[in-house]
């Protein structure tokens, strides 16, 4: 019996369903399809199982070099990437802007070219300016770039870990009501989470002081259809400044970190007023669904955007988000490090 097929033999026999979209970089979630998000979350679930073993080490990325390049302070994101890379057996090198040639005025492009010349496979970058990771990705031919937070623009790995945590506990994402409360305007976490939750079919309500809400009239942003009549994933996203109204029937509430400098710049009159109207606490959670869950990207201002009791209570997924962050970053590093070699 002879027939013809195009598949490679091992692909045929193995466990090989490719992740859709041959992605080279992870810059934001706006260019992820729903299928790619699902595949990435599924891979993260397998990675999570590795994290729960006695021996937390697999050889998948042996011989790969991952560089974390942080121009801004960070604990959990940087350490999470480092742990993810090390569990996958990659070599991880950490570089912070304050202790490098960047202090001597080296440009981002030259730093990137230098790292590329040293044979780095993946650069994980956090930068205060929106678009810095995109700039690196455009200019480096042989390196995969992961955005670990750029200005107020995007934080895609945080968005994916939020999706993973939510999906794990809600049993799915489509149709669920997600409230994101706080300084949405300046939050890269919110921006990426909105894309992710909206693409996964959740209903997203943004809440907070009207001065800290994004402008729904921004060109190219909101509405029922985007360019070319393609259905806009953001059609399921709306704004409700009153948290008491927004939280009604919510399945998940995500509180954002409030930076106190926003008050000095006049975005809201006083911390006390912010707490009174937008703090997520037990009374407010009582208006949500009985099993509603709480997330926070950290670091938390306990007693400001979220009450201490709730943050450490049964409904809080905050510590689990951190664990899942390692699993998500393992999944992304695995997916990308394979792709770099394929394209070279």
């Amino acid at each position: 019996m002879v027939a013809t097929v195009a598949n490679d033999n091992e692909l045929f026999q193995g466990n090989a369903v490719p992740v859709p979209g041959l992605r080279r970089h992870v810059l934001d979630l706006d260019d992820f399809t729903a299928e790619e998000i699902t595949a990435t979350l599924d891979n993260a679930a397998a990675m999570r199982a590795v994290l729960e073993r006695d021996v937390k080490k697999v050889p998948a990325l042996r011989g790969r070099v991952i560089m974390t390049l942080f121009y801004e302070a960070s604990t959990r994101t940087r350490i999470s990437f480092e742990e993810a890379g090390k569990i996958l057996s990659a070599d991880v090198i950490n570089m912070t802007a304050s202790a490098s040639s960047i202090e001597k005025g080296e440009s981002l492009l030259n730093t990137g070219l230098t790292l590329q010349a040293m044979g780095v496979d993946v650069i994980v970058i956090r930068h205060p300016h929106a678009g810095a990771p995109h700039f690196l990705a455009r200019n480096l031919k042989n390196v995969a770039v992961i955005n670990a937070g750029d200005g107020a623009h995007a934080h895609p790995t945080q968005g994916l870990l939020d999706l993973y945590t939510a999906r794990d506990h809600l049993g799915g994402l489509a149709g669920h009501k997600v409230v994101i409360v706080g300084d949405v305007l300046h939050s890269r976490v919110a921006r990426s989470a909105v894309w992710g939750f909206a693409k996964a079919g959740a209903r997203v309500i943004l809440s907070g002081p009207p001065t800290l809400m994004p402008d729904p009239l921004t060109p190219g942003g909101w509405g029922t259809t985007g360019n070319n009549g393609v259905a806009n994933p953001l059609a399921n996203v709306s704004i409700e400044p009153s948290l008491d109204a927004a939280i009604e029937g919510a399945d998940l509430v995500m509180a954002l970190r409030l930076q106190s400098e926003r008050q000095q710049r006049g975005f809201f009159p006083s911390l006390r007023e912010y707490i009174r109207r937008w703090q997520v606490n037990d009374q407010r959670m009582a208006r949500a669904n009985p099993n509603a869950l709480l997330m926070h990207p950290g670091p938390m201002n306990e007693g400001i955007e979220v009450s201490s009791g709730l943050a450490h209570g049964e409904r809080s997924l905050i510590e689990e988000q951190v664990t899942n962050g390692v699993a998500i970053r393992m999944a992304l590093l695995y997916q990308l490090a394979g792709a770099v070699a394929v394209e070279n």
């Binding site: 091992e10 692909l11 466990n15 369903v17 992740v19 041959l22 891979n43 590795v50 998948a60």
Partner: peptide
């Protein structure tokens, strides 16, 4: 058993979906 994380040919194949080993 999912053995994708233990393969020696990651660089020769596109990114695979990994499933838990149980």
């Amino acid at each position: 058993l999912d053995i994708n994380l233990y393969r020696d040919d990651l660089s020769e194949r596109p990114r695979m979906r990994i499933r838990p080993t149980t």
